[in-house]
Design a protein around this nucleic acid. Sequence first.
DNA 1: AAATGAAATGGTAGCGCTGTCTTTTAGGCC
DNA 2: GGCCTAAAAGACAGCGCTACCATTTCATTT
Lengths: 343, 343
Amino acid sequence: MERKRTKSGNIRLADVAELAEVSLITASRFFSNPGALSVGKRERVESAAKQLGYVPNLAARALASQRTEIIGVLIPSLTNSVFSDVLRGIYDASEGSRYSIQLGNTRYSILQEEKLLRVFQSQRPAGLIVTGINQTEASRAILQTMNCPIAQIMEIGPDPVDMMVGFSHYDAGFAAASHLLAQGFQRIGFLGARMDPRVQRRFAGYVDALKAASRFDPRYIVTTPTSTTVTLGGTLFADLLAQAPDIEAVFCVNDDLALGVLFECQRRHIQIPEQMAIVGFNDLEFMASAVPPLTSVRSNRYEMGKSAVTMVTAAIDGFRPQELVVDLGFKLMIRHSSIARRN
Amino acid sequence: MERKRTKSGNIRLADVAELAEVSLITASRFFSNPGALSVGKRERVESAAKQLGYVPNLAARALASQRTEIIGVLIPSLTNSVFSDVLRGIYDASEGSRYSIQLGNTRYSILQEEKLLRVFQSQRPAGLIVTGINQTEASRAILQTMNCPIAQIMEIGPDPVDMMVGFSHYDAGFAAASHLLAQGFQRIGFLGARMDPRVQRRFAGYVDALKAASRFDPRYIVTTPTSTTVTLGGTLFADLLAQAPDIEAVFCVNDDLALGVLFECQRRHIQIPEQMAIVGFNDLEFMASAVPPLTSVRSNRYEMGKSAVTMVTAAIDGFRPQELVVDLGFKLMIRHSSIARRN
DNA sequence: AAATGAAATGGTAGCGCTGTCTTTTAGGCC
DNA sequence: GGCCTAAAAGACAGCGCTACCATTTCATTT
């Protein structure tokens, strides 16, 4: 594989064109629209590029064409497995397209989100995916000026910036609490950690469900701004038991907390569901194989990521979806941990 | 905020320079080396940029300067929480620097890795982080030509492409098995899933430890190429029990499998550790709060990501680390699940 | 006051590619 | 064979920025 030395030492498209004995622009077309070349030239360019080991320069392409093939993605956490699933959907969908993903981690801070948005601005992304509907005023302003399709994911709400894919966390929280009420539980606790906007809406759903049944009591609620762990689930549950020993059931705002509660119950020899019902949120894989299997609220996280990319890429290509707001819903996975003792 | 209309409709550095009444290059320097400007001009450029809402164009910058501030990262999985931790380290470290991360998901395929490497080539990244030491020949060749600092992470081994941060999975597997042997367990099973190169090296460590103690028996081994889940842990354990009912202990190649084994034992009323000892791998957070707490091998995943970025960025800036291969080690976290019944 | 050198500023030429428009060639029809 | 149309190929300018080198400014030294 002999190397042509050019001024800069890099192999440029011009070198390929020269070797293939075609014009620069014809070589360029080979990469953007090979069908436009005659068979002979197509083959010549192809073999010349291969022979020289030509690698296109994306920066030059972006500058000349005034567009990129980058989709910026902003998520609040990398460790939370909820977002791993969303990301997997995003990366899976992007692989089928010509777009690549630029990921930013906001760590649940809307200020960090704003900062990352400014970085994205410099990249001129072709599309954008952001988490949630609680952006700062400045972030909203930036989004408005970015002039590219934008999807807000994880939840749906009023006043979308552009497109939305998610579900109602309020409804999901309401459904979880209602399920426990329907099973005949009366004193239903709430365990919450890292009270981000979506968690708070689940909480609001829980509160309203209990109030509607005249079962609401602030003594049943334990929350902390700390981030979630399994161990924390045990700790919070211990706090809840201390402040409301008569508690019958507990709705955990995510599955890690629920697992922590399960372990704490095992430690204290509390029977599930006979002495304590448990409902989690997200329906991570382990919930179904726990002993006993734990009830949870399943959301279509993978689908959410995938749809977001599909919608954004379609919009980039000029096919804006009919429905700009897509509700992917949720499903209450009722398992042994929340089946009524009486009823 | 009035807008200057230029030919392209975008605000360019030239517009900022014009408004600030300085030359183009002075405006450019404001962003690359503000200290080189006199106070007066610095302020004029700053306010002009702000007034116009100027956003630098990274593609143009990359093209003109012939370098980028992108660090490419290739990992095999987004759902495996091992890599979430590594990624968190990577993103945390990158935030302190001026570099941004471009992430690729290889899904444990070295062919996919090769493909993504070609994509990265087009971006001309300033540095690269790849997972493991098992690349294809072609991938190695690409890495060689990329002419930027490269860190291989997760494990260490012979023949580094450039730099390495990790630990010996063989030693860790050997240590886990040795611990069980030292506790007096004689029939020690192995549960493995998604047998990637690192898992296989852990397995080799287990095999050699048992062979050294003359305790090796292939009947004690159950593996599957399927990807890991908690549920799978239970299933594999059931298979192991079926083919070797006299098993006393089990070394699980990761913590999800170990949790599955725990649940399966609970289901079958098998006492841990009296009737069955369990050792996991990775030491995910839940291991310590399980009932009983589960023994595992802790690796410094977050540190691994962080160090990799630190080493790569230092190398980009011309400060190649003294030690090109960094062994971050591992730590056997001995908990109740593997404490000997006799001894 | 002249000489010196460092700091501050500017001019110019690309970086590698694609959009736009123009020219050439090939193909189809009477 | 001549004419028309479409396909294929090319010329050229310029995307927005920085590297490189040249020039100006100004404080300091003799």
